[in-house]
């Protein structure tokens, strides 16, 4: 899975905001706010990644347990998908 085309992430302080750009922008009026870990996962998903790969990246970056990383990744991915940002 990866982030669909047509979204832009911009960092403000510790958090980030995702906005829609391009052709889809008119249908997607919402703004999505991400915390630091959220932004990290979002950036990972600019390229196609599996859940295992995401969890591994989180473990490496934040030195957390594999199980915690996986749970975080899953929860985040579900939210991204619900918000309509994910492809595949």
């Amino acid at each position: 899975m990866k982030i669909k085309d047509g979204f832009m992430l911009r960092r403000f302080g510790d958090d980030s905001i995702v906005v829609a750009v391009g052709e889809g922008a008119e249908d997607f009026n919402r703004l999505i706010t991400l915390n630091e870990v959220g932004s990290f996962i979002y950036k990972q998903l600019s390229e196609d990644k599996t859940l295992d790969e995401l969890a591994a990246a989180i473990v490496e970056a934040y030195e957390v347990d594999e199980a915690v990383a996986r749970a975080d990744a899953e929860a985040f991915v579900l939210n991204l998908d619900k918000a309509g940002l994910l492809d595949g």
């Binding site: 403000f12 958090d15 750009v21 052709e23 706010t33």
Partner: peptide, 24 residues
């Protein structure tokens, strides 16, 4: 008010361009 709230609220009170360069 925290930064992200300012930006999201501000973006709701302006013209949001769809062209990526303008948005950026």
């Amino acid at each position: 008010i925290d930064t992200v709230s300012v930006v999201t609220r501000a973006l709701n009170q302006t013209v949001r361009p769809s062209e990526p360069k303008l948005m950026s």
